[in-house]
Design a binder for these strands. Structure first.
Lengths: 207, 207
DNA sequence: TTGCGACTATGACAGTCGTCATAATAATGG
DNA sequence: CCATTATTATGACGACTGTCATAGTCGCAA
């Protein structure tokens, strides 16, 4: 019901093209690239099938590329949003990472571990993935890591270190999400957050 | 040449069945589950195609399950081997993790980032993945994490902490491998090793 | 030699995939 | 109103896929 209502709203606010990119990302991160057909994408987006070849003349490669790029921007938005939502009296880096992890654990539990990361799916399923697709995945990762780096810097981590820690955080989050999906248990996600928290807070420069 | 020679040796030392499981794991971690056909597996293993339905009456699910189980055991063997190869004068946990990471970076560079982790591939490509396949992936992860936990314990990390750190290490390694493949750059792998090293060494109990 | 089981060979089946060709419809500017 | 473009509809094509049915070959025990 809620999902259907959301779909109705999406039909009004987003163009069919945007909906198809969105649906592609959603299906890819659930089933993988190879298992999501273009017909499925059109159906999930409630978009006409004929529009696929019209909006995406580059075929599946183009659609997958745009989907993963969208996912990268989405992840970046998520970082800055969580940074802004940090309580003013406790702005330790560990709080930011814990908030990011919490969002994933919530999503895992809400969807019965059906959803993973679309960027990871594209990276693994590199069969028909042209070089452009792989490049899109790489850009998505940097698009995700960049705001995380500046967020850490804003929270007091010195610059050269902030970039390295951002890479570590994305790696740990991505890997833990993988393990969580396989085990159907958020244990890996929470463990990563707990173990990495002190490391992050210890990296803030003494003021 | 070297690869062909290895295949010849494998043909003598391993049974066709073992070779097919091995080849399945190799193809899966390169192309993903959906993109590796059973015909490809038989061809890669230089095994007769008719043997597939004979040795794996459970179909593709069984073959994938055995391949990922094999990969789990392989990873476990790798951990204990690297632990044994640690120099007696410097047995810090960071050295073990660095050695594990180094093996992956070498493989990445040697194969031009063509190979990922088969367990990750199976976890992401959960389209036709029956519940048994997902369970096999989960078991592969624990099969990998278990010896790593005891290795950390042997290197001086107190028990409850060792398990948590093992989870963190596997997560970080898996995620960094993902990023490395997308970016075709081992930077993420080395960064993870560098950042996590001090954390590991700080976890050893004072003697 | 005969027979029986393990293994292999091969072709066919139903299904799905991405892509394309073609045409019909809707929208838009003159 | 028309014309031109944007969008949608639909069917077909060839190339796969996993699986099955059937027959074949081999080696080893009786």
């Amino acid at each position: 019901m809620t999902q259907q209502a959301a779909a109705r709203q999406a039909a009004r606010t987003y163009s069919p093209r945007e909906r198809m990119v969105f649906s592609a990302a959603q299906l890819i991160r659930r089933d993988g690239v190879g298992a999501t057909g273009m017909r499925d994408v059109a159906a999930h987006a409630e978009a006409p099938r004929g529009s696929l070849q019209h909006y995406f003349p580059g075929g599946k490669d183009q659609l997958v590329g745009e989907a993963v790029a969208w996912a990268g921007r989405y992840a970046a938005r998520r970082v800055s949003r969580n940074l802004a939502a940090l309580p003013p009296d406790d702005r330790r880096p560990s709080r930011l990472f814990a908030a990011l992890i919490a969002q994933w654990t919530d999503e895992c539990l809400a969807t019965d571990f059906a959803l993973g990361c679309p960027v990871a799916a594209v990276t693994v399923d590199c069969a028909d993935a042209s070089d452009a697709t792989r490049t899109a995945a790489a850009q998505a990762f940097t698009c995700w890591r960049e705001p995380l780096t500046s967020a850490l810097a804003e929270l007091g981590v010195p610059q050269p270190r902030a970039a390295a820690l951002a890479t570590l955080l994305v790696s740990a989050l991505e890997g833990a999400l993988l393990i969580a999906r396989a085990e159907r248990d958020v244990h890996a996600l929470t463990t990563v957050a707990d173990e990495l928290g002190p490391l992050l807070d210890a990296a803030v420069a003494p003021q």
